[in-house]
């Protein structure tokens, strides 16, 4: 049974030449089969936690540890982490022009499984997974995320989750921007993976509505770069009713009402 252990994690990001401390001591243990929800105001560092676990180069670990079944995750490269079983469904999935979804998925499956899946079986597997997520088969010939709607990008993330079957899945605001039908379809995808019992899920969200579909075992309140309180599913309802005031957050940041902060958009470095 896989276990991800995060101990006293401090993370900074370089912004305008100075290091900005964002995570200030995160402690969290996620076991296969468990579902943890993280809720917290905008800018509290939820995505930073997700990226730090996945190994995004912009984020620097200043102290603390992350281990997967005792293995030092922080010593691994991004792709090694993924192959070790860590998966991140991104808040803002990246467009990769000219790389088709089918090529991308097969390359990912080949890397994660350690050998190329047999072509015939793979085509069937991918087709079935897409149809469960109500994705048009035409998506497989399109460039990765290019021109996808917000909802289509999220389905594509969950498609990868289902095909790659990670040990630990971090889902960063997978529910944001989804209409009711898409929310149901995407939640069912997550639940199919949960039912396998082999995956631990860390679900980052602003909204309790996804928790009606995906029942968390634990809810953590994330404030100013660390977990301020942990509890069961009932904690989400309390947040929904009372907001984050009790954690010293003065703004009217209330789950369900706050909008995500603007993303750092990817783009090419432009030189003169």
């Amino acid at each position: 049974m896989a276990t991800l252990e995060i101990r006293d994690l401090h993370v900074s990001v370089e912004a305008d030449g100075t290091d900005k401390q964002i995570l200030t001591g995160v402690d969290l243990t996620i076991r296969a089969g468990e579902t943890h929800a993280i809720m917290g105001p905008n800018g509290s560092g939820k995505s930073t936690l997700a990226y730090a676990i996945a190994g995004h180069p912009k984020y620097t670990i200043t102290s603390g540890t992350v281990t997967l079944d005792g293995e030092d995750v922080l010593a691994m490269s991004v792709d090694e982490r993924a192959r070790a079983g860590v998966f991140l469904a991104m808040q803002y999935p990246v467009e990769v022009p000219g790389v088709s979804v089918s090529n991308f998925l097969r390359s990912a499956a080949t890397a994660i499984r350690g050998e190329a899946p047999k072509l015939r079986l793979w085509v069937k597997e991918q087709k079935e997974a897409m149809s469960r997520l109500e994705m048009d088969p035409a998506f497989s010939e399109r460039s990765v995320n290019e021109g996808f709607s917000g909802g289509e990008k999220k389905r594509h993330e969950i498609l990868q989750l289902e095909l790659l079957k990670p040990k630990i899945a971090v889902l960063d605001e997978t529910d944001s921007g989804l209409d009711v039908d898409a929310l149901r379809v995407v939640s069912e995808g997550v639940n199919r993976v949960r039912e396998g019992g082999e995956t631990g899920v860390l679900l980052i969200t602003h909204y309790t509505r996804i928790l009606n579909y995906i029942k968390p075992d634990f809810v953590h309140v994330f404030v100013r770069g660390r977990i301020a309180e942990s509890g069961g599913a009932e904690l989400a309802d309390e947040l929904e009713a009372n907001g984050y005031a009790k954690y010293g957050v003065e703004t009217a940041a209330t789950p369900g009402r706050s909008l995500p902060t603007s993303p750092v958009l990817p783009g090419v470095v432009t030189t003169a």
Binding site: A54, S77, A82, M90, E95, V96, I112, L164, G267
Partner: peptide
């Protein structure tokens, strides 16, 4: 960001 996305899928 493109490289990170692909690597985050094990590539």
């Amino acid at each position: 960001e493109q490289l990170f996305y692909l690597q985050a899928r094990g590539i």
